[in-house]
Design a protein around this nucleic acid. Sequence first.
DNA 1: GCGAAGCTGACGGCAGCCTGAAGGGGCTCG
DNA 2: CGAGCCCCTTCAGGCTGCCGTCAGCTTCGC
Lengths: 219, 219
Amino acid sequence: MRILLIEDDTTLGAAVRDQIASDGQSVDWVTRLDAAADAMSATSYDLLLLDLMLPDGRGIGFLKGLRTRGDVTPVIILTALDQVSDRIEGLNAGADDYLVKPFDLSELSARIGSVARRYSGNPNPILTHGPLDIDLAARSVHRDGGHVPLTAREWALFEAFLARPGQLLSKAQLEEKLYAFDAEVESNTIEVHVSRLRKKLGSAIIETERGMGYRLGKP
Amino acid sequence: MRILLIEDDTTLGAAVRDQIASDGQSVDWVTRLDAAADAMSATSYDLLLLDLMLPDGRGIGFLKGLRTRGDVTPVIILTALDQVSDRIEGLNAGADDYLVKPFDLSELSARIGSVARRYSGNPNPILTHGPLDIDLAARSVHRDGGHVPLTAREWALFEAFLARPGQLLSKAQLEEKLYAFDAEVESNTIEVHVSRLRKKLGSAIIETERGMGYRLGKP
DNA sequence: GCGAAGCTGACGGCAGCCTGAAGGGGCTCG
DNA sequence: CGAGCCCCTTCAGGCTGCCGTCAGCTTCGC
């Protein structure tokens, strides 16, 4: 999950960033609204953490602008204790939740988890290669709409080819990739796995360079 | 919108009741948990305002009981306890929001409006997955109309799969989700919990990819 | 046409997975 | 404060199916 933190207090910002990172999420941190707008046009975020008092304007206006433009990205507001009216305004402007400073970092995690659960589900990037649709994060391959199950070795081999599309890979290189130094194979293992991959994914997927090695075929 | 106020402080209770009524909502007010249970069996409410310290028990247990039984009615907690741990416990028990006494009555109105909007936009955010109906906010699962109780670990595991449907998750990834880095498990805990989830939810719910991990099966 | 290199079906061993059972720790209730 | 209960972890035995190996066949280069 990608999170954008918009907070000008460097101490708090660093603490929040570290907490989120330790939860395994990806964080970008900006200190100004114009930087936030730039970041959002460059990247799609799953959640915004928005401070209301920033050097170049009030966060409320920023949030209202987002909602007016139809942006539905979840927003959690971070505000100081005495700004009761801001909190009300924030909720009415379209915030999903808010946290009152000073807040406990574990509570932040709980709120992020809650929002994330509510909005779970944005798809992973899909590679296409000829008739194949490949989702690297999900480790899944689809061919003509059907799911093609790959075993661990098969996936490792396929991944090696995908990492260097079109490049020639010798059997020795592939063995290193699959067996990480220590193990010695004394047989035609690579040939066998290439054969199994071709059967599952299509015979054109991997080309043989006789005496040299293999390479990923053109789509 | 029908609101049930559960609050034993008569001064505060009356103030809250009047505020809500002046917002045009319908309120019932009880001062004990057993009275709340009676009222809820007689009437269907759209929102509960729940004090945590009551003459006949702690509101947290009451809330947990509700969620365990599959009740998804939105709950806002009202309490004098401003301990962070209590607030986290409340949110984890299934509360939708939190107000720490003393609070501003206009803020109460804003929160009620927020919860109402959240639930009117999508009245009951229920995921369906094959024969399963899943309410993420209430942490409840129904199968063939019956409630399936999940333990904490089971839910955490299930949630990890739901967050990335169809994606392969390694045991290491799942352990990180369940144990947040600090604790180390030296055994087949994940396997055991997967086994229990399958027994409760159906064996097809989670697929094994030997040597790689698990993924949520197709509905 | 010949040798070398690659392909692929078959198969046994074993790593990896499943699951029932037991023990311990935390929580609730009397 | 003890009893009872539930949940989590650990362990062990059994099972599944992936992987490495081999053999026989095909393809390629010369």
